[in-house]
Amino acid sequence: MSDDNVSLVIDGRAVSAPPTASIIQAFSLSGGALVSNVGCMGQGVCGSCRCMVRRDGSRDVTMELGCETPVEAGMQVAFVSYFQPKRPHVYDLEALTDSWQILDAMDETFPQAKSCRHCGGCDRACPRGLDVQKGVEYAVLGDVQAAREVFTECIMCNLCTLACPERIRPNHLGLFIRRALAALTLRPQELMRRLRQIENGTLTVDTSTVDDTRS
């Protein structure tokens, strides 16, 4: 096994690991203290293990998820901390009650979106390969359904927010649209019926219908 191990460097730590290991696993195997930039350990949904990767012989540095990227010989890796903008966006979804106002509310909260320079930084930053810039463009054009779709698999790693020169915060813009659409338009009929039954007391739970004998 160890003969097949590959050597790489993670956050300055020389690491040797089997080629099937992910970056996160390799770092842990090497004895490195794993107390941040770690979360779901392989599912690729928490975004915490965002990192910069430079492969042997390449000039390019790519943005990836450490739990999903297998190690390679000569790889160099640096984790990137969660980026918290100094002045975060602010909105109150509860105050948005009129669905006619969605676009105005979006403009008010994310005024920078209109200034997108189409530099593609967000697309290059996205470790999930989403069409982030396109999503912003859809939002600006008012095609909220298309924008919503673009951000469906967004894991909120915040790398596009870090990258954007215009401080657009694309992932938060996408999430705003998704939230606003759900909150203002999702009204399943059977849920509404069921809530009425529970709230007017016609539907309750009788706990005496089952006996306590353990099976």
Partner: peptide
């Protein structure tokens, strides 16, 4: 479920009818 929808969580619906549709 209503609380989550109010917070902006989406759920899959049958067909494409968010309003008055079926979960």
């Amino acid at each position: 479920i209503r609380w989550l929808i109010k917070l902006g969580m989406s759920f899959d619906v049958v067909g494409h009818r968010p309003f008055g549709g079926t979960l």
